[in-house]
Amino acid sequence: MPLPTKEFPIELKGLIKTFGEQEVLRGVDLMVEPGKVTTIIGKSGTGKSVLLKCLSGLMHPDQGEVIYRGTNLTDPHNRDYLKDFHKGLSYMFQHNALFDSLTVLQNIALPLSEKTRLPRTTIQQRVEEMVDRLDLEQSILTKYPSQISGGMQKRVALARALITEPHIVLFDEPTTGLDPVRKNTVYEMMKRYQERFGFTLLMVSHDIPDVLCISDFIAILDRGKVRFYGTPESLKLTQPPFPPDANGETFGLTNPFKTKILAYLT
């Protein structure tokens, strides 16, 4: 199968994932539009990160399909297709997952030095270019992740995710642990680079309403299912937007959460 391109959507059909007796994903259906920013929001423990991990191949769903270019990637017979799919996919972890014993240069260069036969000088050149594009200083290349700030670590992790020029980038709560100013900087940066590079961006977050500003599509995951999918604007047209459940919560989302969304939209 050719490597992922920007033209094709990723379709999730009836994904189920269970841990012991706890069913985390209970039949997730979702269409991730190509070249767009899709954000999955929802309370903690609703299976957002599990969904990303199922998509990235870090976890295998118990049931359901991940369809790309007409191929079901969860089918064990399509392992080669899945491998090719992953070559065009990058994952940015919640806590960056940078190698603390490697320098920033070695971290960013890792996917190229391990998976390609490019000469060292070419790899160094590409890393330096990427660092420039992400507005990082060249002087940090010789430093270790622990020697740079949290915001810089985020950008280094983003540089590592983008160095292979992926077509799909998955972000797992990219602003965890950052202050509100830095959060907005990271979101602004993600949107800017998504537009510049044109990749498909799928993000998990609960930063409401900040993520609504940069998202083309919103999916609300609650109790293992996608309860809403659409543009941020279409949230307003969903009337009544969120009927409360027996606990007075809306799709499992507390009222302040709903208020925040509505405050943003009105």
Binding site: L89, Y91, A97
Partner: peptide, 25 residues
């Protein structure tokens, strides 16, 4: 301890998403 920390801080998962075999690495 080093590999354990790498496992807990998702560095091993990061290798897998980069299509790098963690056992080989």
């Amino acid at each position: 301890a080093e590999i354990g920390v790498q496992r807990n801080s998702e560095q091993i998962d990061a290798l897998e998403t980069m299509d790098i075999d963690p056992k080989g690495f």
